[in-house]
Amino acid sequence: MFASTLTDAIRLLATFDHRVAEIVGLSLQVSGGAVVLGTLIGLPLGACIAVGRFPGKSGVSVLINALMGLPSVVVGVVVYLLLSRSGPFGAFGLLYTPLAMVAAQTLLVVPLMAAIARQVVEDAWQRYAEELQVMRFTWWQSVTTLLHDCRHSLLVAVLAGLGRAMSEVGAVMIVGGNIDRATRVMTTAIALETSKGDLPLAIALGIVLIALILALNAVAFGLRHWAMRRYG
């Protein structure tokens, strides 16, 4: 059963058409958009928590670490209620659009990226705190300097966000609706094919998804090495 499903899946890989390419493209757009927003929000947020001195700092750190395990289906329901026509942002008509999916995945990846950034920047902060204070850096200058100095390590946070966004199904299913040629992405397509009992096709799509994530990670790894060699 398992072996035959797998061989059928591999045979299917050869026959993929432009419909699969469309689904892959939308996955990249949605998850890519979420990771860009996650990078712009999550990394500075994590760095601010690391450098800042404020009451309840350890509480915030624990909270943001815990939110790494935020269930995607909960995020889906919350964003659904917000974007629903009967919800507070209903007038924008965003439900069942790719933008709604970007919003939901952004909420998912921000805590994850912020938590990793907080740890990375805090470690660097402990090493360089004195130097930065001697140079009379303001708090915000310290944050941006540390973010810049840690950029190679922070790539892990970006990749973790990308992996989380590309692999989640709970949130995009609810706020996107898995609409054919509109909001269907890799994971919801896999869920649909599994529902139809077409397990070889589901596995084939799964292989494509894993290969895609692997390729993105390989590119990021290569870029990082190239950048480190070239710019130090």
Binding site: Q29, V30, G32, G33, L40, R151, H152, L223, A227, R230
Partner: peptide
Amino acid sequence: AHELLKRIRVAVLGVVLAGAAQA
């Protein structure tokens, strides 16, 4: 390197917005 990253970000954002506009 972060110039490069910035450029990638801009490109990705462009793709997302283009997709939204298309929709």
